[in-house]
Nucleic acid binder design. Structure first.
Length: 144
DNA sequence: AACGACGTACAG
DNA sequence: CTGTACGTCGTT
């Protein structure tokens, strides 16, 4: 906080700091909420239609810039994230001092993707969860 | 594509 | 302040 950083103040960013179980149960919760509560979905839809909030990540005037500047965090749920120890043999481990990179085996699957791809899959996921027919191409045959 | 290097965000 | 590691760019 005392550090005056260039750039906008922190605001409403995604938070991934949770462990795998937490992430999973949250996922389940969202899922079940979606399936068991048509009412909330209805309300959400109404809000949307009333323009109270927008699902579009591309209406650039918002914090798109801010988000781009923010660093993503590991999802905490993928196999690499669940790994506890560095392999000690990969390039990243060997060059820890100069490379400044996390062990290859511990590199989060999400973070391996380029930012754009990541955003697309995130968004399509969110849209799917909201039950809106999204036009984003489903290019994830491997995401479970 | 993989790697190296480096700036720097971010947490402790 | 310090250590870790994400983001990005240049090189191989």
């Amino acid at each position: 906080m005392p550090r005056p950083r260039p750039g906008p103040p922190p605001q409403d960013i995604y938070e991934f700091s949770m462990d795998a179980k937490e992430a999973q149960s949250l996922h389940l919760q969202t899922k079940s909420l979606e399936t068991t509560s048509p009412l909330s979905k209805y309300i959400e839809t109404e809000h949307e239609q009333a323009g109270l909030f927008s699902l579009s990540p591309f209406d650039g005037t918002s914090d798109a810039n801010v988000d781009q500047k923010k660093r993503r965090k590991k999802c905490g749920g993928c196999t690499p994230c669940l790994r506890k120890d560095n392999c000690g043999t990969c390039a990243n481990c060997v060059n820890r001092k100069t490379g400044k990179q996390i062990c290859k085996l511990r590199k989060c699957d999400q973070l391996k993707k380029r930012r754009n791809e990541w955003e697309v899959s995130e968004v399509s996921e969110r849209l799917k969860q909201r039950g809106k027919g999204c036009k984003v191409k489903e290019q994830d045959g491997k995401m479970q």
